[in-house]
């Protein structure tokens, strides 16, 4: 399976726009492909397709529970917890687990010498499979609202992805959710916009990908709306500009209604076909 992540440092540059339309282009070519929505905090990709929910699997994490009849309030579990998720006050006979701070590492269970700690499962979110008759398959990671980190949910979504080609719609930013997504990918497309904000966040993403040694190229979305700073930067750094999407109020309006922009727009569809070809040339083993 070849995995392409569509990512960007800045939010709202058009990651989901690119991944949904690129995905549609690949399945129209008859490629066995899956679209995985890794933006578990705000998943949106599935809403662009007329798919049905096939199955949903819960993603859980272990959290400790302390049996106060066995606890001697020695405080070792609290010392071992790297996340400040356990509070022990001996004088008051108090032992409390702050579940929302727990990362489920299991250190407290190993620390406890009195068998007072057992573990239970806590719900973090779900991984949902969608599909339809036309061969469209979507995997969505969906974080439960109020949970601190999307990483376990998006990792599970990535591990539940099976096809010849996978497109990962990455979470925004440059911290752990983004890193985990691109780390699982063979190739990365960075989507940016031609503005100073777009350039600033693009540079941060490029820095990481270069450090990680991941091959990548850049798409400039809403070309014509800003200035040439991103173009100049790409030229100077010798980074491939794989596609430019001009700003078009009509495309923005279709997208806002949850419609795939390539449907019924031959010019845009041709651009995405050309992108798909450039990508398959890089991959090898997949022919359009």
């Amino acid at each position: 399976m070849f995995k392409i992540a569509v990512a960007s440092g800045k939010g709202g540059t058009g990651k989901t726009f690119v991944s949904t339309n690129l995905y549609q282009t690949f399945i129209e070519y008859g490629i066995n492909a899956v679209l995985t929505d890794c933006d578990a905090e705000e998943p949106n990709a599935a809403s662009f397709f007329k798919t049905e929910l096939i199955e949903s699997k819960q993603v859980t994490q272990k959290v400790p529970q302390i049996d106060s009849s066995k606890c001697l309030f020695c405080g070792k579990c609290q010392d071992w917890c790297a996340y400040n998720a356990i509070l022990i006050i001996k004088e008051r006979g108090l032992s409390r687990v702050m579940e929302e701070l727990c990362h489920g590492c299991g250190a407290c269970s190993v620390a406890c010498e009195n068998g007072a700690i057992t573990e239970k499962e806590m719900l973090l979110g779900e991984v949902i499979n969608f599909s339809d008759n036309s061969g469209c398959k979507i995997v969505e990671g969906r974080l439960k609202v109020g949970v601190y980190t999307p990483v376990p949910v998006l990792k599970r979504a990535i591990n539940s992805t099976y096809a010849d080609l996978a497109i990962f719609d990455s979470p925004p930013g440059t911290s752990c959710p983004f890193i985990h997504t691109v780390n699982a990918s063979d190739y990365v497309i960075l989507v940016t916009e031609p503005t100073p904000f777009g350039l600033n966040d693009l540079k941060l993403s490029v820095e990481i990908l270069q450090k990680m040694g991941r091959p990548f190229s850049v798409i400039i979305n809403r070309a014509g709306l800003g200035n040439r700073v991103v173009h100049d930067y790409l030229k100077r750094e010798n980074i491939e500009l794989i596609m430019e999407i001009p700003f078009d109020k009509e495309i923005a309006s279709a997208y806002s209604k949850g419609k795939l922009a390539v449907s019924g727009r031959p010019l845009l569809a041709a651009k995405f076909s050309s992108l798909a070809r450039k990508l398959t040339d890089k991959i090898g083993g997949i022919a359009l």
Binding site: L143, G146, Y148, P172
Partner: peptide, 10 residues
């Protein structure tokens, strides 16, 4: 604030 609904937003 940052985008999303995770720890940084909270």
């Amino acid at each position: 604030s940052p985008p999303g609904i995770g720890c940084a937003v909270i």
